[in-house]
Nucleic acid binder design. Structure first.
Length: 584
RNA sequence: GCAGAUGUAGCACAAUGGAUAGUGUAGUGGCCUCCGAAGCCAUUGAUCCGGGUUCGACUCCCGGCAUCUGCACCA
């Protein structure tokens, strides 16, 4: 029988069969989970609850289950009873080898994981900056976490649609267009469009504040834009295109490429239908001049309105978000959509989701699953939201540039012999990767403290530590003149033997659990933690078990372990959106 | 005021209801004639307070306390 990608599932099935034979079929939970116990790979906890309910002695029940179970395990694992009645499984070295042989490359790993979300289509709504404005640190988490989640979902078999829901429509365009017509500098627009748009917006805004006549003119520009004036529309398009060009420079560094960029403007002509439908179903009503939705059953939203049309008749983000859900349901046939946004927007999205459920039910439409993937704020070392010394937002491009500079200094210190160009290339991977990883390694729910010394530093759970492990494995294969893609070309490998080999092999098998946990909880930090532990197990193995030894059998099995450690580290880092290196 | 989130060693973080609460950093002590010491090994140190549910609670429930966030037309 070939190895299953998910060893836990295979064991669960065997436990379920054994429980039925042992007469424990009613109300027994056969689930097998990864174990943190030393010497135990997986554990089944169901006996305790079952014994309690049936008023049986748990250790006796475990004994009975074990007797039915043992013949089924055949070489896969040894089972024993632990504590008050846990069933503990330790995979045999032969089973570990079988797994390593069964998953020799990235496609086979992906095929193993693909069952989880096969046939599903998920829209991931992330990044979502406003045009004509620089992206700043506040945009980092959505981009980084969103991309990692996209990759995890795709790896787990889903069709993923990456959607950048940009803020490209709003009242600010009146002032911006007013200034654009009078003061735009073509050379500056060519060099750095967003820089110039920001300058123009400030100019237009300042002039409007100083002179009511200018304010009226700016308002006229906005009206013209909204009514489809060709000249203003053309300017607005140039603003959008220039902004997207600038954004893509950052996305390129973060490994992000969107499938679609449908911003607020795209939904602008689709909001009338929203007003009509929601009023038609009796969900929305006028209040203080605005069109709002209340949720009487909700403790807060019975009095806190969801404003879907402002009192001046204009749309807002609630209107366009509703239109977006409808568009995605009707045109993209999505299983669901994930919103990767700052947790401060939680109220808005709860109101949105509640409203959509009632609206779709009333209209007889199947509602897509809508999930909020919210995250906390990036804090500086003072515990307050990260800012520059002068109190401004830190631009994302400046943050990434500083990361690369700091990484360059470090690489130059640690590896002064590498050529300058290579040190620069390494710094780009280490610098940006460190920022990404520092963000991903935290549980996204809470705020986190960003400190350069901890992020870029190579100690602890950092990108550099993982990249270093990758570089060392690559170095081994270079020295041996072997190919990590075909580690058994010299001689077929035997099962792991030494404590270091066994620990590494057992951790490798757990990759499946880590991917599943990160994907199902939409929390990439579980994958980070796993990769960090894997790199740690590799480093310990590296210290005790030399690969370049004369005995062919020893060398063959260690070479196989190195190859798979490299594969899993690189695959895992890729799932997080990081690049890896041959040397560093 | 109402609502939500968070509270774990000096500091920064982890723990999908499971066994002795894990790691990093800082501190201490070891390991380079041996595949990269950006590494490895050892060691000191913690669940905000009070109840409850459970065979079992950092985790779930109730009540406090502290911090952060949101609450009528910016997204």
């Amino acid at each position: 029988m070939p190895a299953s990608f998910q060893t836990a599932d295979r064991l669960s099935r065997l436990v379920a069969e054994a429980a039925a034979e042992a007469g424990m079929d009613s109300g027994f939970a056969p689930a097998v989970e990864p174990s943190a116990q030393a010497g135990t790979d997986y554990q089944a906890n169901g006996v305790l609850g079952w014994a309690k309910k049936e008023r049986k002695n748990p250790r006796q029940a475990a004994q009975g289950l074990l007797q039915a179970l043992e013949p089924k395990l055949k070489g896969l694992a040894s089972a024993s009873i632990g504590g008050p009645g846990f069933i503990n499984f330790a995979l045999t070295p032969e089973a570990l080898l079988e797994w390593l042989r069964a998953f020799p490359d990235a496609p086979s790993l992906e095929a193993g994981a693909a069952g989880a979300l096969g046939g599903q289509t998920w829209i991931v709504d992330y990044s979502s900056p406003n045009t004509a404005k620089q992206m700043h640190v506040g945009h980092l988490r959505s981009a980084v976490i969103g991309e990692a989640i996209c990759r995890l979902l795709a790896f787990s078999g889903a069709r993923v649609i990456r959607d950048n829901h940009i803020g490209d429509w709003g009242t600010q365009f009146g002032k911006l267009i007013w200034a654009y017509k009078r003061q735009a500098d073509p050379a500056a627009l060519e060099r750095d469009p967003i820089e110039e748009f920001e300058r123009l917006y400030k100019a237009g805004s300042g002039a409007s504040d100083a002179d009511p006549a200018v304010l009226r003119e700016a308002q006229q520009e906005l009206v013209k834009l909204q009514s489809g004036d060709p000249e203003n529309l053309a300017i607005w398009r140039r603003i959008t295109e220039g902004s997207l060009r600038s954004f893509q420079q950052i996305y390129d560094r973060l490994g992000i490429r969107f499938d679609q960029t449908l911003g607020e403007s795209f939904y602008n002509d689709k909001v009338e239908r929203i007003y009509r439908e929601l009023q038609g179903h009796g969900l929305a009503a006028e209040s203080e001049g605005a069109l709002v939705v209340f949720h009487p059953e909700h403790p807060r939203f019975k009095t806190q309105p969801f404003i879907i049309r402002k009192s001046d008749g204009a749309a807002n983000y609630a209107s366009t978000d509703l239109a977006t859900v409808l568009y995605r349901a009707e045109h993209l046939h999505a299983t669901g959509a994930l919103y990767v946004v700052d947790t401060r927007q939680k109220d808005h999205f709860e109101q949105l989701f509640l409203t959509v459920r009632k609206w779709f039910a009333a209209a007889g439409r199947a509602a897509p699953q809508l999930e909020l993937v919210d995250f906390g704020t990036v804090l500086g070392e003072d515990g307050k939201p990260l800012k520059t010394r002068s109190g401004d937002n830190i631009r994302l491009k400046d943050l990434l540039a500083e990361a690369e500079e700091r990484a360059y200094a470090l690489v130059s210190e640690k590896s002064p012999d590498l050529p300058e160009a290579e040190r620069r290339a390494i710094a780009a991977v280490v610098g940006v990767g460190s920022v990404q990883y520092a963000d991903l390694a935290q549980n996204r729910s809470s705020d986190y403290l960003f400190a350069w010394d901890k992020a870029i530093s190579l100690e602890g759970n950092t990108a550099a530590y993982l990249l270093y492990a990758v570089a060392r494995i690559r170095s081994i294969f270079r020295k041996l003149g072997a190919d990590p893609r075909a580690p058994e070309a010299g001689a077929p490998a035997g099962a792991p033997e030494s404590p270091g080999e066994l620990a590494l092999a057992r951790k490798l098998v757990r990759f499946a659990d880590a991917v599943r946990l990160a994907q199902s909880s939409l929390r990439p930090h579980f994958l980070c933690l796993y990769l960090y532990e894997l790199a740690g197990d590799f480093s310990a193995f590296y210290g005790t078990d030399k690969v370049a030894v004369d005995e062919p059998a020893v060398r063959a099995r260690r070479q196989l372990l190195c190859a798979r450690a490299l594969l899993v580290l690189e695959t895992g880092l890729r799932l997080l959106g990081l690049r890896t290196l041959e040397r560093m």
